[in-house]
Nucleic acid binder design. Structure first.
Length: 282
DNA sequence: ACGGTGCCCTGGCCGC
DNA sequence: TGCGGCCAGGGCACCG
């Protein structure tokens, strides 16, 4: 599922290929999750491709298009003519048929470039809005700091966790605490920090908070380095799978890489937590 | 204000 | 081979 590392990989793949390209046409076949008026963007060129938490932001000057991929969303780029290059950044051919029955929106750009927004489960959305209002978007307005930013430091984390009595696993999934963690990287971070997912957030010692802070950054950095996790639908803009799960320590892992014991699964806050009961004591 | 639950969706998988 | 039921989970409405 697209969490921060997956959306960041998509962003980085879009930047060299999409910036400067002009949107010529947009069509959707799942209008239920289309907000604003994306038609307004036709004729405008992409000026920037950004990310905030799990939200992808494509700016067209004064206007912007936001995407949330939720669990099964995909953003895939393809040339209409496969032999053509995109400004020196060729897109490798791959087997995915496009468009397909999961395609919810199709955006055509100059340079024979087509962006497909696929989403099997229809949870994802796209929204057009003035660039100046992006920060006011409710989800973004309340979003916590980026985990790799200076604002996300041990002092901030300690103060934020001190107010929260819920299990640390549930708190890490709360986007107002820190942006971009989902079920995979939250479990990975807790494994690195050797913290049981049911530990009350406010019970963490200063040393544990410091360790968790580093662990979150470690999990996110490794996720980005491996171009994300492809447990289900996620692929890069080239249609390739991310490889992080080959290196995962907890999420859908059998044996603990530290002690060799079995990784346990437990439902916490409506999500399946994966952890080592030996290394992550309650 | 906080935490817990159910909902939106589809396809894969399990047991019978 | 078919089919009902469960599971996957991000964000939000709703409830206590």
């Amino acid at each position: 599922m697209p969490e921060l590392p997956e959306v960041e990989t998509i962003r980085a793949g879009l930047v060299p290929r999409l910036e400067g390209k002009r949107l010529s046409d947009i069509e959707y076949n799942w209008p239920k999750k289309v907000y604003g008026e994306p038609e307004k963007l036709v004729g405008h060129a992409v000026t920037a491709v950004r990310r905030r938490g799990k939200v992808l932001i494509i700016e067209f000057g004064q206007l912007a298009l936001l995407f949330h991929l939720k669990m099964t969303g995909q953003i895939i780029l393809r040339h209409d003519a496969e032999t053509e290059l995109a400004g020196g950044h060729p897109i490798p051919t791959f087997s995915t048929e496009l468009p397909n029955k999961t395609t919810r929106a199709t955006l055509r750009f100059s340079g024979n470039l087509t962006l497909y927004f696929n989403d099997l489960r229809k949870f994802g959305w796209l929204k057009e809005m003035p660039s100046a209002q992006i920060a006011e978007e409710p989800l973004l307005k309340t979003m916590g700091p980026e985990p790799l930013s200076a604002a996300f430091n041990t002092k901030y984390l300690a103060e934020a966790l001190a107010k929260r009595g819920g299990p640390i696993k549930a708190i890490l999934l709360d986007q107002t605490l820190v942006a971009g963690l989902g079920n995979i990287y939250a479990d990975e971070a807790l494994w690195y920090a050797q913290l049981h997912p049911l530990r009350p957030a406010k019970s963490l010692t200063a040393a544990e908070v410091a360790k968790l802070h580093q662990a979150i950054r470690q999990a996110i950095r490794l996720g980005i380095a491996h171009r994300g996790s492809s447990y289900s639908a996620y692929v890069t803009v080239e249609g390739e799978r991310g490889t992080y799960l080959h290196h995962a320590k907890a999420y859908h892992v059998e044996k603990c890489d530290r002690c060799g014991g079995s990784i346990e699964k437990k439902k916490i806050a409506g999500r399946t937590a994966h952890f080592c009961p030996h290394c992550q004591r309650l």
